[in-house]
Design a protein around this nucleic acid. Structure first.
Lengths: 76, 76
DNA sequence: ACACAGTGTCAAATATTATTTACATGAAGT
DNA sequence: ACTTCATGTAAATAATATTTGACACTGTGT
């Protein structure tokens, strides 16, 4: 198919949320800090469930945090 | 925390999409039919990546297909 | 009766993601 | 210099998602 990737705004959103630390986001989503680090840095993408929990912390729709990039998405 | 679950409208959407079969959705998302069955029937939730691919097939935002139910979600 | 398409399920194997533990760096404060 | 805090990384392990292959059930058509 295509090399589609998932980007996320977690790091940005942490800082906009009163500079929330990785540890706090980890606590609030029920995972370890290392998991947050891995996701922020694109090591792998989270399960749908974790993605929803993160979205909930920031009180944003999931797609405001994670974006899926397709090839035909014509971004220049 | 809470027993939060992820529901999906895949089965419904397949029928609304010209009665697409599980096999066709599987082909279009690059997974096996068993994976689609398991997700439709709530055996487990897909990875974020697969969720995005499914959303793409139906040309709908991810959150129109998968919904996360929280305890405090809109309950009075 | 027979074949076939669509679906459900099950078990075992593989792939991917999550967790733990531990160590490292830089910035800020004492 | 020393400590604390936030962050990055790596390896081993646990947990979950996905695949493979098989078999069964129902409805439809021949």
């Amino acid at each position: 198919m295509s090399k589609c990737r998932i980007n996320n705004e977690i790091r940005k959103l942490r800082f906009l949320s009163n500079e929330m630390t990785q540890q706090e986001l980890a606590d609030r989503t029920g995972v370890t800090r290392q998991t947050i680090v891995a996701i922020e840095n694109g090591k792998y993408s989270p399960t749908l469930e974790l993605a929803f929990r993160i979205a909930e912390v920031f009180k944003l729709p999931l797609e405001d945090i994670f974006t899926y990039q397709t090839d035909d998405d014509g971004k220049k």
